[in-house]
């Protein structure tokens, strides 16, 4: 059945991996692309990166963090349930070539987004160093999966419960200081993390690609909800991205625009704590 949920597995308390039947998308999707899904007719359209796909089975996998009403509802779904709609693949695929040595930095649920890009980079012959981090050990995802496709895997947690005590950007800084020759960096995660990683690589002029996650509606270039400023120019993340040159991105604007519906999100989740700043 179209858009059937095949599995919906918790990777941690707040992060879930869902496998969906979507043969056309599984057939054509490339690393870095995303889907927009709706749970029901009254639902929001939410963009989620395609983490993996199986063309033979006609399925694709997404990973999401429970941050609001829609993702909470998504987490409640069981195998056999159907999503109202799944649209994709959307966005420009990642430019994949053999750059030499690449570092893939993933933070929080962004590790899920980093995974398909890292995998494609490895398959293209790059030496891949992965750095992943989370607030604390029990919400760290995809450690084994990334270990399998990386030449080296480094880990940090904000609270020191696992790996380096601190941030992924610290590890990257150490790597650069240690003299590791890095040809390209991919940074995907919360806005503050991507901003700091870009500041670490900027003085060393290491090309740094970020994958942006602004609010979207149609996600086909029609509405401009997802506009971001890159090099002083307005771009639509849905059709011009989602990946951009991190050294040119206005992260402050991205963070501000992500908070645009803070009040409504609180109302929708009937919670007193808004989590939209954690994106």
């Amino acid at each position: 059945m179209l858009n059937e949920v095949i599995e919906n597995t918790k990777l941690s308390d707040i992060v879930v991996r869902m496998v969906i039947e979507a043969p056309d998308i599984a057939d054509t999707r490339k690393a870095g692309q995303f889907v927009v899904l709706m749970i029901d007719e009254k639902g929001e359209r939410i963009p989620l990166t395609i983490v993996d796909s199986d063309a033979a089975k006609g399925t694709l996998a997404i990973i999401y963090q429970v941050v609001g009403k829609t993702t909470a509802q998504l987490a409640e779904m069981r195998a056999g349930d159907r999503l109202f709609s799944v649209l994709g693949p959307l966005g420009r695929p990642t430019e994949i070539e053999n750059f030499g040595t690449v570092v893939s930095v993933g933070g929080g649920v962004g590790i899920g987004v980093a995974y398909p890009i890292t995998k494609a980079l490895k398959e293209a012959g790059n030496k891949v160093i992965s750095i992943i981090g989370a607030r604390t050990k029990n919400i760290l995802i995809l450690e084994e999966e990334l270990k399998a496709i990386s030449d080296k895997l480094l880990i940090s947690t904000d609270d020191g419960s696992y790996g380096h005590h601190g941030f992924v950007s610290d590890i990257l800084q150490n790597l650069i200081t240690s003299g590791e020759k890095i040809d390209r960096v991919y940074a995907i995660g919360p806005v503050p993390m991507m901003r700091v990683v870009c500041e670490v690589t900027r003085p060393h002029k290491i090309p740094t690609v970020v994958s942006l996650n602004p609010i979207m509606v149609d996600a086909t270039g029609m509405c401009g909800a997802c506009r971001v400023a890159v090099g002083g120019k307005t771009q639509f993340a849905c059709v011009d991205g989602p990946e951009f040159d991190g050294h040119e991105v206005d992260f402050a604007l991205l963070a501000t625009r992500l908070r645009m519906y803070c009040d409504q999100e609180k109302q929708a989740t009937e919670s007193t704590r808004c989590t939209c700043h954690e994106r």
């Binding site: 639902g43 409504q264 929708a268």
Partner: peptide, 19 residues
């Protein structure tokens, strides 16, 4: 699009917000 397609004018019955 928010108001017409997504029915944001009926938020929170519909999930899409609008300013």
């Amino acid at each position: 699009t928010r108001s017409n397609l997504m029915k944001a004018y009926r938020f929170p019955d519909y999930d899409t917000p609008i300013a």
